[in-house]
Simulated assay, not measured.
Amino acid sequence: MAQPSHRHPGNAPGPWFVDDTCINCDASRQCAPELFGEQDGQAVVVRQPSTEDEVMAATRAMLICPTASIGVVGARPPTEGLFPLELDGGVYLCGFNSPKSYGANSFFVVRKAGNFLVDSPRFVGPLVKRLESLGGVQDILLTHADDVADADRYAAHFGARVWIHEADSHAAPYATSLLRGQEPATLREGLIALPAPGHTRGSVMFLLEDRYLFTGDSLYWSRELRRLSAFRRQCWYSWEEQAESLARLVDSVRFEWVLAGHGGRHHAPYEELRASLTSLVEYMRSGESLSGGVSRDIAW
C-alpha cells in the first residue's frame, strides 16, 4: 500500500499521490496520461483528477501499478469491474501488472475457439473470478522470458496449455507447448506465433485475426514520438536481430492494433502502422547512435 509519508515531492497537491517505491514502469501513464507524468525517474501525479471519469482512470492506474505505489488520502474509490478492461472486440487489458515482470502489461482474449492470456498479470482473486466468469483460460501465450510473472499459477488454476519459444523456455519449465525456429507457426485458425529474436533470443509476437499484434517487448507505440518504437537500452540479446525480426513484419503481416508488454498500445489503420514500422526498421538498421532519449523510448 502506498505510504503518504513517502510521497514523492513532485506530486501535484491533493489526495492522489505516488510514493517513492515506484519503479517507473509506465503503466500508470498508459492508463491516465493526463494525470500521471514522470519526474526524477519515477511516476508522479501531475494533475489531480477532477471528474468521475478521471477518478476512474486514476483508480485503474492504482490497480495496475505492480508495486502498489499509487495511493489516495481519504475514501478509497470503488474498484470492482475496472479490470479486465475491454479494448476492442473481446480483447482485454488484464491490469494488475506484476512486479515479477517489471510491470509489463498482459492481455486476455475471449474467443469461441478458446480464451487465452498473452503473458501474465498478478494472480489476484478479483481478476481470477472475472476470468472464470468470462469462460476461463484455455491457453497462455508467453512472449518472452521477462514477462512470465504468475503464468504457472494461472495455468494450474485453469488447466491451461502454456506456449513459449524453446530459446526462452528456461523461464517456464512447466510449459506444455514449445515454439521452435524462426518460421511463423499457426496455433489455431486466425492465431499465429511470430518468432522475433532480438529483445531476447526467444521473443515471440502473436498475431490474432490479422488485426491484433501482441508484441511483448519487441515493439511498442511511443506516446512522446507518436510512432512505433523499440527498446534499445533494454535489448538483451541482439539489436541487429531485432531489426530483422521487425523487418519481416513489414510485407508479411497486417495488423491494426499494437498491444505491447512494455510501452504504449495503439490502434490505427494498417497503412499508417506499416509506414511507421518501415521507418523504425530503417532507423534500427542505420546504426545511428541514440541521443536525447529516455529508457522507454528511442529518440530519432
Rank of each mutant, 00 (worst) to 15 (best):
residue 1 M to D: 10
residue 1 M to A: 13
residue 1 M to I: 07
residue 3 Q to L: 14
residue 7 R to N: 09
residue 8 H to E: 06
residue 8 H to S: 12
residue 9 P to Y: 11
residue 13 P to H: 05
residue 14 G to Q: 05
residue 20 D to V: 04
residue 21 T to C: 06
residue 26 D to Y: 12
residue 27 A to G: 11
residue 27 A to V: 14
residue 31 C to N: 13
residue 31 C to A: 15
residue 36 F to T: 02
residue 41 G to N: 09
residue 49 P to W: 01
residue 50 S to M: 10
residue 50 S to I: 12
residue 51 T to G: 04
residue 51 T to I: 01
residue 54 E to M: 07
residue 57 A to V: 07
residue 58 A to G: 05
residue 64 I to E: 07
residue 66 P to H: 05
residue 71 G to Y: 02
residue 76 R to I: 11
residue 78 P to V: 10
residue 78 P to R: 14
residue 79 T to N: 11
residue 81 G to Q: 13
residue 82 L to S: 07
residue 82 L to K: 06
residue 85 L to E: 15
residue 87 L to M: 13
residue 88 D to R: 14
residue 88 D to L: 08
residue 89 G to I: 09
residue 90 G to H: 08
residue 90 G to S: 08
residue 90 G to Q: 06
residue 94 C to E: 05
residue 98 S to C: 10
residue 104 A to F: 03
residue 105 N to Q: 14
residue 108 F to I: 09
residue 110 V to C: 15
residue 111 R to I: 07
residue 111 R to S: 14
residue 112 K to G: 10
residue 113 A to E: 15
residue 117 L to G: 01
residue 117 L to T: 03
residue 120 S to V: 04
residue 121 P to H: 01
residue 121 P to V: 00
residue 126 P to S: 08
residue 126 P to W: 04
residue 129 K to R: 15
residue 133 S to I: 09
residue 134 L to A: 07
residue 134 L to E: 11
residue 135 G to F: 09
residue 140 I to W: 00
residue 144 H to W: 02
residue 148 V to Q: 00
residue 156 A to P: 06
residue 164 I to F: 01
residue 166 E to T: 12
residue 170 H to R: 14
residue 171 A to M: 03
residue 171 A to Y: 02
residue 171 A to K: 02
residue 171 A to S: 13
residue 172 A to D: 03
residue 174 Y to E: 09
residue 175 A to S: 07
residue 175 A to F: 03
residue 177 S to V: 06
residue 179 L to T: 02
residue 186 T to N: 11
residue 186 T to K: 15
residue 190 G to R: 11
residue 190 G to A: 08
residue 192 I to F: 07
residue 192 I to S: 09
residue 202 G to P: 02
residue 208 L to Q: 06
residue 210 D to W: 13
residue 213 L to N: 05
residue 215 T to D: 07
residue 222 S to P: 00
residue 222 S to L: 06
residue 223 R to H: 14
residue 228 L to A: 08
residue 229 S to M: 09
residue 230 A to D: 00
residue 231 F to E: 01
residue 232 R to M: 09
residue 233 R to L: 12
residue 233 R to I: 10
residue 234 Q to H: 12
residue 234 Q to Y: 14
residue 235 C to L: 03
residue 239 W to H: 07
residue 241 E to L: 05
residue 242 Q to E: 05
residue 244 E to Q: 08
residue 246 L to C: 01
residue 247 A to F: 02
residue 253 V to L: 08
residue 254 R to E: 15
residue 255 F to W: 08
residue 257 W to E: 01
residue 258 V to A: 07
residue 258 V to R: 05
residue 258 V to W: 03
residue 265 R to F: 14
residue 270 Y to T: 11
residue 273 L to K: 02
residue 276 S to L: 08
residue 276 S to D: 13
residue 278 T to L: 12
residue 280 L to Y: 03
residue 282 E to S: 13
residue 283 Y to T: 10
residue 284 M to T: 05
residue 288 E to G: 11
residue 291 S to Y: 13
residue 292 G to A: 10
residue 292 G to H: 10
residue 294 V to N: 14
